[in-house]
């Protein structure tokens, strides 16, 4: 192959790339916090007595999990204005990512809640905990501790999937890559560099999540998180 790689050219677009990285980080962190919070709420609703709430949550989870993230973004960004809701590309990306991640988080946390034994709840009652205390200390926190590695995998997948937001012109890392590529015409080099940046981001995010797990749940959970590869959710 006579092609000579020129990575040097890319260096002059440093600022664009850094801006893209920053946007990707902001979107990921925000959607992880929001999505996880929604997931806890929805999974709690889901774990209550059968009823309309449960049906709605189930429907939401199934619809989101069985349609592509890209199409969800299209609906938010292109479709919503038709209903009178106009949002910027960044907001649309954040909404899309949150909606998506909330559905997966709900499903994962639900599985965690279902794995909590009745006897543990009864033990909590016997100790004279209030319902809210039981809910927090006996159900939600242990449930999340159990599924924390799976949740983290989902967070990493979401960060990676945020690259798709470039399709609705959100200025995140993949969009920066496209811009630099169009300016420099060194497509392959640009995408190699940006791919490596994503890889580093994924490793960093995983490491950070492991530390948060250590802080929240102690050593055992954290170790599982650090070694676990992204699980594939079904």
């Amino acid at each position: 192959m006579s092609y000579t790689f020129q990575f040097g050219v890319i260096a002059q677009y440093q600022n664009e790339i850094l801006a893209g990285i920053w946007m990707t980080i902001k979107l990921s962190v925000a959607s992880i916090i929001l999505g996880c919070a929604c997931g806890i709420v929805l999974a709690s609703v889901r774990s209550m007595k059968p009823g309309i709430g449960r049906i709605l949550v189930d429907a939401y989870v199934e619809i989101i999990r069985n349609t592509p993230f890209l199409v969800q973004l299209f609906i938010v960004y292109f479709g919503m204005p038709g209903l009178g809701i106009r949002v910027s590309a960044v907001t649309a990306a954040l909404i899309g990512m949150t909606i998506n991640l909330a559905a997966y988080s709900t499903e994962i946390i639900r599985a965690g809640i279902e794995s909590i034994h009745k006897s543990q709840i009864e033990a909590g009652e016997a100790l004279g905990f209030t319902r809210l205390q039981i809910y927090r200390h006996v159900i939600i926190m242990p449930a999340i501790a159990k599924v924390y590695p799976a949740l983290c995998s989902q967070f990493v997948l979401m960060m990676l999937a945020s690259s798709v937001c470039s399709a609705i012109s959100t200025n995140e890392l993949a969009a920066s890559a496209a811009f630099v590529e169009s300016q420099s015409f060194r497509s392959f080099e640009v995408y190699i560099v940006v791919t490596l940046i994503y890889l580093a981001l994924a490793l960093a995010l995983r490491g950070m999540l492991a530390m948060i797990g250590l802080w929240l749940f102690g050593r055992r959970v954290a170790r599982r998180t650090a070694v676990a590869l992204p699980e594939v959710q079904t």
């Binding site: 990493v156 990676l160 497509s187 995408y191 791919t195 994503y198 890889l199 994924a202 590869l229």
Partner: peptide, 17 residues
């Protein structure tokens, strides 16, 4: 580890280019 650590979109661009 690499495949699971990079976006599908990047795999796509890299194969394309």
């Amino acid at each position: 580890q690499i495949i699971q650590g990079i976006p599908v979109l990047m795999i796509l661009f890299l194969s394309y280019y």
